[in-house]
Every structure is written in structure tokens, then in C-alpha cells.
Design a protein around this nucleic acid. Structure first.
Lengths: 218, 218, 218, 218
DNA sequence: CATGAATGAGGATTCATTCAT
DNA sequence: CATGAATGAATCCTCATTCAT
């Protein structure tokens, strides 16, 4: 993964390192430009200007425009997946794992709004942009949710009649849409914690008023 | 609305009817082509060929390519919104209203998969495609969910600590993502009813195992 | 010539006459539209709208767009040439003939400013618009001036060292440019008579102060 | 002005010079193509082919097709105006100034027949081609004639009853029409000197046989 | 004859990509 | 490696012309 390379940059010859810097500079610029304009409306010259390199330089690091988008997906989403996997692996309680996932996702989206925009919008149409592109990283990411649910079902904290395949999609869809709108208009009103607790509540307990507590109180 | 005209087409002079037919023929063709290729990759000539008209004919009914997409949004989403509003208005129980909404949405997405694709993918990037475009129809559609939740909170069936603003987004996001993937890969495995009941369960009761078991253990 | 047909319109069946009316209606409309927009920027639909006929109707009277312009040239310029020739033929004094020519031209340009515009601008580029088009009518028109000058040279009123070929062009060029600008900006300041007398003065006596008159006065 | 740059091209860095060369190469090609086909019938690809560049290259130097024509007017007419002004400023005798103007104009038209064609034909319709375009350079050019005439009137060599506004137009019109036809058909018959002397004669002395009237009066 | 909806050829323009410097 | 001028394929859109009614 790319961010790792930079950690070991000192092991590489200077010229190579410079090149790597330029690679990531272009990726960052592309994220910014794609977020603002969308893939198709974005111009190579826009990305070049943002990255402060010449148009032609981009083609020393990427094969074509599609390759830039693909790299954004693979590398940037890869980072999030990796980080999330690392944090979750240390835990064993499905409840906490789910909470970590939500918090991680919301924080990542909040931290890099441009990347959020690209993931939420460009990733959806990626198979039309890049023919036969399979978002393995992304599938892997959503798969984490499925695994947590399955684990929870085994340990008995989650219902057996819940379909993990559908649930993981519903869960991610809710999280994605909330964070999408959050970035656009909800932001000023709600904190990560509020959003996070609401989502967790929805998924764990639903929105129905709990009638059982009444009997419990008696 | 457009669909209405076609019902009363026999009341109109022939020339008018012909024109209306061509308008909707182009819209249908556009939905199909946009679904397959995406807005930017779609060519006017693709739409023309699909609609079995000449390229130039399209410009007798639409100002430009963007106008076609906009018309798809306004007219087709408008139809769904109208139909959903009609059905829900007749009900007063929030629970049933929500069930109707889900069923309606899934059926609409299943019925016209191409339109589903366009809504799920092109609508998201619409503000980048059509500058300053506000999806009023779409906002209205999601607003329905918010109103149902608020109503349920007043009648006491839904918790008061649920934020309708966030909940409506989470709810729609879940529904949208599930129907999206459903159209792509889950379809063969699950029926509308299964998906529908799962979504309702998530939202009403959550995925947690019911706490009744606790009292049962005692 | 077309204008001739209209003189004998009563000899034709009514339906034909109606058609002739439409022909001239289109010509008039074309003159107006060509004057305002120029041949290339003018649209067939503009002419149709101006003539209050359908686009397709134009093609019942003209082969194509170029044919309309050609007809404007042939018919409208033809009228002016014919009228001018008629008036001049009655005269024998070159001086008066020249005065009539100038007056006729200026009056014609003043009377139909749109036609003036078309002649002054579109006629110049006519051989680029209509391949191999020879403005015979126009050549004939300018030829009148040449003939007058030659006649004047024979009767001794005009110098023998004047080249009629060059002179007729210089004369027409002066008249054309003055009437062109006159229509645009000089109009409010000068009458036909003023312009006319200035042009005659230039050509007959030049702009030099007459040194001979000084000795003649003594 | 552009022509100056080329004179000092060797003082500029190579890359800059190259660009300037391409700019003027396109201008020259455009003059040639516009002269042959006229602005509207000319194709960008024609100009590109003539300039031996790719179609797209033209848009590195000009905003659009209209901008090319505008540049031709401004730069090329500018050159002629500048050269004429320079030569005339050194003189004080209106008679000689007028002779220089005629000679300069005819030589310029003879030297670059394509430019002559463009000025004589495209400039006339320029306000229809380029909306709100004001030929300031051209107005300036014709203004020179007016100033010469006014000067001559002050020094008494030209009549006071001559209207400079009308006279400058008549003069330019004559010169323009003669040089226009000269380029087309008179060329083989007459030299610059012949044309020049004829025009001067017309304007200074007119075409009337003068001295006889004096003797006739005595 | 008249209409005007439909046609589709044609062209200006854009922009990803290349390559000489 | 880096540049950015040059390329030219690709496409939206216009509008003269046709033809079914």
C-alpha cells in the first residue's frame, strides 16, 4: 500500500522517492478534482494544475485517466480498509466491532471529504467508467460488516433470522447515505458521536418504541 | 404528468399524440442507454438509435443532452413519487405506511431496472452533471419517510430519541443500497417480500436478539 | 423577369396567381432577413416565418437557399436596372443621363434599404456563395455608366484621357460606398439631393479648387 | 504589432518564436482560405491544412473561428494603416499625401490579393459575422482621407463646398471598387501607375473636359 | 398546393494523449 | 524525469432539405 512506501522512502534512491512523492501528489490532486467536478467533467489539466505538475507528467505515473481513478479507489479505499481491519481484528465483541466500524467510517469520511465524495459518487458508477472493474477492496470492506454480523449470530447477540447478506448492505447503505448527506448539509448540526449512536441504535434496536421495558419496569 | 396523457391519448388530435409518443419514446430509450452506459459515456446517437429516431429528432423534444437526463429525473421520479404519495395518503398507521413505502420502492426498482440504475447512479452525480440542479422531486420522496417517522413518534409507536432527519436518510440509504445490489446480484436469491420484511425488521426492531430471552432464562 | 409576370397576373388562373404572390412574398421576406442577418446566418425558417409560410413551402418556389439569393439578385436588381435603363434611354445628354443614374440609384437604395444592404454586402460575396455565378444584371447596370462616359467622350464633354473601364468602376464604387454609409450613419445629415450633387461635382469637376475661374473673374 | 515581432524574432527565446510563427502561419493560411472560400464556407480544417497544423492547434492560438477573422482584420489591416500613416505623416502637401494614399492602397492590395479579397468582401459583412464588431482600424484608415481633404481645404487647394465626410467615402469607394475589379479582371491591362493616375485625375479634376469652358466664356 | 415533423450530413470544438525538446 | 505544445479522434448540435399527411 502506498502510504507504507512513504514510510520506507529513505530506503529508496532519491530520484525514486521524488517520483513517489509525485505519484501521491497526483493522487491527492485527483481526489480533490474528482470530488469537485466528477470524473468525466474533471480534466487532466485540472489535476495537473492542482498537483503542480505538467499534463504530460501525469502519464509518467498513470497509464490514462481511468487508471488515476482506479488508483484512487485501490489505494485510498485500501488505506481505510486496512486501518479498519487492523482495529477490528484486535476486538472480539461483535457489538464493539460494529461500533468501531461506524466510528472509523464516519471519521474517515469526515477527515477527507473529497475522498468521501469520490467514494460515494464515482465508485457507484465505476463499472461504467472502467469496464469490468471489480471493487475488490470495496467488497472486502463491506464484507467486514457481514462477518461481524455472522459472528454475532454465532455468539447469540444477533438474531438468527437476520440475513447477513442483506443486512450488511442495509447497514452500509444507511451509513453511506447518512455520511453523504452529513457532509453536505447535516454537518453543522450533528457530531460524529450523535450520528454514530443513532446508526447503532437503528441497527441494534430499531426505531420502534420498546414495549418490553414497560413490563420490565413493573 | 406524462403517463396520464398516454391514458387519454385518444382524446388528443393525432399529430399531438404522435409528438407525445416520441417524447416518451426518447425518454425510455435514454433511461435504457443511461442505465447501460452512464450519462457521460452514453452518446446521443445511442439514444436516437434505441428510440428509432434520427439524432436531430431528439433536439425537437429536448434542448440538449443534459435536458434529457433532467427530464428523466423529473418525469420518471415524479411518477414514482406521485404513486407512492397516493398510496400512502390513504393510510393512517405509520407502520403500514412504512411497509407500503418499502414495497412500492422495491417494486418500482424491480419493475424498471434501468430507471433504478439511473436513479441510483446518475442522480447522485446530478449536481455535477447539471449545475445547480436541485432534486426537488427526490427530496420530496425522501421527505415522505421523515414525515412517517414523525407521525409515528407522535402516536408513540416510534421512539422519541430517534432523529427523523438522520433516520430518514439511514432508512433510504439502506433501502437504496439493498435494492441496488439486489438488482445486480441478490435478485436470484431473494423475493421482494423477503427483502421487504428484512428491511422492516432492521428498522423496527434492529438486528439484536430480543431481550425477552433474558426474562425467559430466569 | 418576375416583375413582368405580375403585370400579366390577370391572365393566369387564380391558383397560379396566388402562387406568384407567395413567390414574391418569400422574396421580400428573404431580402429583409438577408439584410438583417446576412445570407449564411439567415435561416430558412427565419424567411418562412417572415413570409408567414411553412418552411417546406419555400421549396415549392425555390430549389434551395442559394436559389433564393440568386432570385433576389436577378429579380430585384433586374427591376432597378430596367427602370434605370428606361429612364436613361429617353435622354441623349450624357450629363443628364449621369445625373439620372445617380438619383435613381440613391432613391432605389433609400427606398428599399434592405435590398440595398443585400446588394452592397451579399452581392460582393455572391461568387463564393453561388459557384460560378455571374452577375450579368449587375454587370449590365455598371455598364450603363461606361456607355454614358463613352458617349460623353464622343460628344466632347468628357476628357479623352479618361479610361471608361476604370472610370465606371470608380464612379460606381464612390456611389455605392456613399450610399452604403449613408444608409447606416449619414442619413440623418444629408438628403438625396445633397449626396447627389456632391457625387456629381466630384466626378465632373473633381475636388480641386478651380484656378481658371480666378483669371476668368478678373 | 505582429509584423514587428517577426523582425525581431531572433531576440526571443526559441519556444516563443515558434509560437509566434504558428500564430502568423495560421493567420496567413486563414487569409488565403477566407479569400478563396469566404468566411462561412471556409472550414477550420481547410485553414489547418493550409497552415500545416492540426485542427486542434488552431484553438491554441484563437478562441474560435470568428476570432481568426477578427485577428485578420485587426492585425493585417493594422499593418496597412500603420504603414500608410507612417508614410503620410512625413508629408505636408495634401496633394502628395493623397497620391501616397492611393499608391499605398493599390500596392497593398496588389501585394496580397488574398488579403485584399478578405478586406473587400468579408469586412463588409463583418458586423453580421461578429456581432457588435466595430472596425476601428478600418474607420481610422478611411479617416486619413478625410483629414487630408480637410487639410487641403484649409490650405485652399481643395474646394470649400466639398463635404469631407462624403468625399472620403466617395474616394475610398472608388479606390476600393477599382482595386477590387482590378484584382479580378483589369489587372492584365493596367499598371498601378495607370490606375493611380486615373483615380487622382477623377478626384482632383473630374472627368469633364475643363479648359474649353474657359475659352468658351471669353 | 401547404404543412412542419423528421431527417442526417456536416463541422466547430474539446481534450486525452503523445513526443520532441 | 519533466515539460507543454501539438495532435486528431470523437461528438454534440444545427439546419437545409424531404415527404407523409
Amino acid at each position: 500500500m502506498f502510504s507504507d512506501f512513504s514510510l520506507f522512502g529513505f530506503e529508496q534512491p532519491f530520484s525514486k522517492m521524488k517520483a513517489e512523492n509525485k505519484h501521491s501528489k497526483i493522487i491527492s490532486a485527483a481526489v480533490k478534482v474528482f470530488a469537485k467536478k466528477g470524473f468525466f467533467t474533471a480534466r487532466i489539466s485540472d489535476i495537473a494544475k492542482e498537483a503542480k505538475v505538467a499534463d504530460g507528467t501525469i502519464y509518467l505515473y498513470f497509464n490514462n485517466k481511468y487508471d488515476i481513478l482506479l488508483s484512487v479507489f485501490e489505494e485510498e479505499i485500501g488505506k481505510i480498509v486496512k486501518k479498519t481491519v487492523n482495529l477490528i481484528e484486535k476486538e472480539s465483541d461483535p457489538q464493539i466491532m460494529l461500533e468501531i466500524f461506524i466510528a472509523q467510517h464516519l471519521l474517515a469520511m469526515k477527515k477527507n471529504k473529497n475522498l468521501a465524495e469520490v467514494i460515494q459518487i464515482e465508485l457507484r458508477q465505476s463499472n461504467k467508467v472502467i469496464k469490468n472493474y471489480r471493487n475488490n477492496k470495496f467488497t472486502e470492506y463491506i464484507g467486514i460488516i457481514g462477518e461481524i454480523i455472522e459472528k454475532g449470530q454465532k455468539t447469540g447477540v444477533y438474531r438468527d433470522d437476520v440475513n447477513p447478506e442483506i443486512a450488511k448492505r442495509a447497514f452500509f447503505g444507511a451509513l453511506d447515505e447518512v455520511s453523504r448527506v452529513w457532509n453536505v448539509s447535516l454537518e453543522t448540526h450533528y457530531t460524529v458521536e450523535e450520528i454514530s449512536s443513532q446508526i447503532i441504535q437503528f441497527f441494534l434496536s430499531g426505531i420502534s418504541s420498546p414495549p418490553l421495558q414497560v413490563s420490565g419496569k413493573s
